[in-house]
Design a protein around this nucleic acid. Structure first.
Lengths: 127, 127, 127, 127
DNA sequence: GTGGTCTAGACCACA
DNA sequence: GTGGTCTAGACCACA
């Protein structure tokens, strides 16, 4: 229901934040779409509701979602969200590519990585 | 003697690791050059020897340095160090590409970025 | 609770590492099973928590366990653990073969040993 | 002059001991052959004469070499040395192969390793 | 409660 | 002197 995989050493609330931001950025979550309730996400992922609450609070503070008390949380309207996030993502990727080039990684290796990752069509999820 | 500034919230041993890795990568520390002793670095930076020890241990395990107990620690031969650094760079790049994909960046945009960066003729290198 | 005996001159954290690796390898610790907490192991064995922490950190880095800060440490999924253990076994075997060669053991003798051991039908396994 | 490579974390005197033992076991050092002088070995390998002295002392104590004061050290006569060492080496290798089998390494992989190592004809030495 | 980081300080074998 | 190990004990963010 929220196709997000928790893994690695980063704090869970941060992984949740990034995961949802990516869903918004890629428009798999559309503007004004309702997010699943905090408790639901917590149960689904087997984590503490406080942790989900923290992620939602930070998403709201970042202007990516808005919440209507007693109703739920919703993806913010277009202008605020997707475009800006995508621009940021591109910027981070560009920096990574420059680093890779500086480290002497040949372009061919990069192209192979890109091929490998983008051809893994669909199904990021469920290990 | 080791021109590294500690700052920010990242763990000290990690900052040390990255700082030394950069010195090796940029060849300001040359292959087989002796690194300052654990205790010396600790005194110089005003931190605990154990913390320096941890950074050195991880650098050794990554293949960037080798240490001979009772003699000292040394920068690994060029090939080893370069291979280790490239392996790390590839790992970071792969993570970035996954993030970019999840953020909805189309493959075409990525290919363009790669083209743009790698066609920038030659030597973008050693910052 | 972790049936491990510390003895001999090897570093404690290394004995712990090997002991736990064996429990995982023999599946007395199953995939995704929770390991006892760092402090608990320390108390039980009468050693310092830092020493246990070191063993756990290295097990995680070898891919044999994964840890979620504030939740606990868990045995890695079967595939990861098995791959890590095999990688280590191959490394040890390679070293042994080099030693054997240096000691002047002719290749023919080695081949005979391999033949003898692998033809011993099936399941020599889980000690 | 003593084709031995020092590497890894083991104490140098131990590496020296094993290296010389292997040369004797493989009969690249023959019975009653003279070993190079302590000081010579120390200079050649860039290590402390005390370290070489320690290795020689332990080799003598193990009955692998004998020393004639003011003359030098010599490889012990046949019966004491090569045969026993080789038997030990075979035993260690056999144990390693059993471990490898228990770890699930397929015979094919072992054969490849053997092929790789024994076909690297000659020249163990000089990195 | 949990893993993770860090300090202060000790001791060891080896060189 | 050098790297490596270990203890005792503190503090942190996160859950």
């Amino acid at each position: 229901m929220l196709d997000i995989r928790l893994e690695g050493k980063a704090p869970i609330y941060e992984q949740l934040y990034n995961g949802i931001a990516q869903l918004i950025s890629s428009e798999r979550l559309k503007p004004d779409e309702k997010l699943p309730a905090v408790r639901e996400v917590a149960k689904q992922l087997g984590i503490n509701p406080n942790t989900v609450q923290k992620a939602y609070a930070q998403l709201e503070q970042a202007g990516l979602i808005y919440s209507m008390p007693a109703k739920g949380s919703y993806v913010a309207p277009r202008t605020h969200a997707a475009a800006a996030l995508r621009a940021e993502a591109v910027k981070r990727l560009e920096a990574s590519l420059y680093d890779a080039k500086k480290s002497g990684i040949p372009r061919g290796d990069v192209d192979e990585l890109v091929e490998k990752i983008w051809s893994t069509d669909r199904n990021e999820g469920n290990s």
